[in-house]
Computed example of a mutant assay.
Amino acid sequence: MLHNDPIAALTPEVIEWRHHIHANPELGFNEHETARFVTEKLRAFGFDEVHEGIGGTGVVGVLRSGTGARAIGLRSELDALPVVEKTGLPYASRNPGVMHACGHDGHTAMLLGAARLLSQSRAFDGTVCFVFQPAEENEGGSMRMIGEGFFKRFPVEAMYAVHNWPGLRLGTIAARVGPQMAAVDTFELTFEGLGAHAAMPQLGDDPILAAGAFVQAVQRIVSRSVDPQSALVVSLTQIHGGNVGNIVPGKVCLQGTCRFFELGHSDHCERLIGEIARGIAAAHSLNAALDYKKGYPPLINTAAATARAVEAAAATVGRENVSTEFSPSLGCEDFAFMVREASGCYAWIGVGDVGPGEGLHGDRYVFNDEIVPTVLRYYVNLVEQTLPGKDIEAAG
C-alpha cells in the first residue's frame, strides 16, 4: 500500500481500538463502557449527530454530506459472550467469564474506522447512519431497536453489515442474494412424574428414561418429516435432572434449538416436538410441558442491496475474490430483523482456516487483524458508490 493511503495510515489505530474493546468486554444490554468509547470517538470525528441509549445501550452516529436525500445504514455489534478466554493474549479480557469470542470488538473498531475516514473525506452525497447495536448474541438487540422506532428516527433505504468468517479464504468477501444465515427457534421441555429410590423404581416414574427416548425420537423430525433437500437441524443442547446418586429424579428438563431457512418449519417443529413429547410422556406415565419460542428469522439478503455490496467488494478485493454462490450458514444473526424491515446485505469477510476452539464462540478465538484495511476499504467503497458525490456521478 502507498504510504499516503489514509486507510493504511489509520489501520494501526483501528487495531489499537479493537484491542482496547477486546480487553474490556461486556454482555448484551450492559455494554456501557463500550458504548461510551464509541460515543466519544464519533463526537471527536465531528459527526453531525450522535445518539445514545438506542435500544438500551446502542449508539447511532449520523453523518451527512452534500444535498442528497438518500440514506443508508452500516451496523456493527457491541456485545461479547459469556466465555472464559484462553487465548493468552496480552490484551485478553479483563472481565472474568466474558470474552469477545465472535469478533464484535473488531466489527465495532472497523466501523469506527470507516466513520473516521468518511467524516474526513465526506466524498458522498446523502446520509450514512453508523449503527452500533447492543445484544446481538442472544437477546435480540436489533429487534428492541426496531421496536423503539429505530427506522422512524433513522429512515434508510438499506442496511449493511459484515462478519469475520473463519474457514473462508483470507482476502475474500462472500455475499449472496437470498438466505445467508438461518432462522432459530429454541425450546425447553420438562418431563415430570414421581421420583423413587433407585433400588425401588416400581414405586415411581422415570423421566430420565423418557428423556432418553425423546433424544432419539425427536430426530425423526429431520430424517422423516421434511424434504431431505430442505435444511433443518434440531439439536438438543442441555439435559438436567437429578442430584443424588441413588435417587431416580421426579423431573428432567431438556433444552434445544431448531434451525432452518423455510419459515414453515417453525410451526412444523413446534407441533411435532409437542406430539413426540406428549406421546413419550404418556408411554412413561409422565407429564410433559413444552415451552417453544420463535427466535431470529432467516437473514435474507435483498437483491438490490446485495448488488451494491458485491460491487463494493469487487472494488475492494477484486471480482475474482468475491463469492456470490455458496451454501448459507445454519448459524443465526439478529441483523435479520433489520434486513427484513429495511432491506440490506450481510457479507462475510474471509479470515482463513482456524483450529479447534479457535473458531467463532471458541475460548481460543482470535480476531484476524489482517482484515481491518479490507473492511475499511469495503465500507468506504460501499458508501461512495451507493451515494456518489455530484462530481463522481457527473463523471460516470
Results as ranks from 00 to 15, higher is better:
M99F: 10
H32Y: 13
L63P: 07
E49H: 14
V50I: 13
S76W: 00
R94I: 07
G53W: 01
T87Q: 01
V60N: 02
N24E: 14
V98M: 03
G68K: 05
T34S: 10
H51S: 06
E33Y: 06
E31C: 09
L74P: 05
D105V: 05
A114R: 06
K41W: 00
G58H: 13
S93P: 00
R70N: 15
A92D: 02
V84R: 13
S121E: 13
C102L: 10
L74D: 07
I72C: 08
T34Q: 03
I54Q: 09
I54F: 00
E52I: 05
I54D: 06
A23P: 04
V98Y: 01
I54G: 06
A114L: 03
L81C: 08
R122C: 11
H104Y: 02
S76N: 05
A69Q: 15
A23C: 14
T67G: 14
G103F: 00
A44D: 15
H104I: 05
A101Q: 09
P82F: 02
R94H: 01
L117I: 15
Q120S: 11
N95R: 14
T87V: 04
K41R: 15
V83D: 08
S93C: 08
R116Q: 15
L42P: 07
R122V: 08
N24S: 13
A23H: 03
V60M: 02
F37L: 13
E40P: 04
L118S: 10
G97W: 07
L81V: 01
L117E: 09
G53D: 04
G46D: 11
G88E: 06
Q120T: 14
T87H: 03
S93F: 00
G73N: 11
M99I: 04
F45N: 00
G68V: 12
Y91C: 00
D79A: 14
H107T: 07
E26M: 13
R122Y: 04
V38S: 09
E52S: 10
Q120Y: 06
F37P: 08
L42G: 11
L117Q: 11
V98R: 00
R75L: 01
A23G: 10
R70A: 14
P96E: 09
N24M: 13
T108G: 12
T39E: 14
E77Q: 06
H107G: 01
E77Y: 07
R43A: 14
V60D: 03
G106R: 06
C102W: 01
P96F: 02
F47R: 12
R70Q: 15
I72L: 12
D79N: 05
R43D: 03
T34Y: 06
Q120C: 13
E77I: 09
H32W: 15
V98A: 08
G113M: 10
I72E: 11
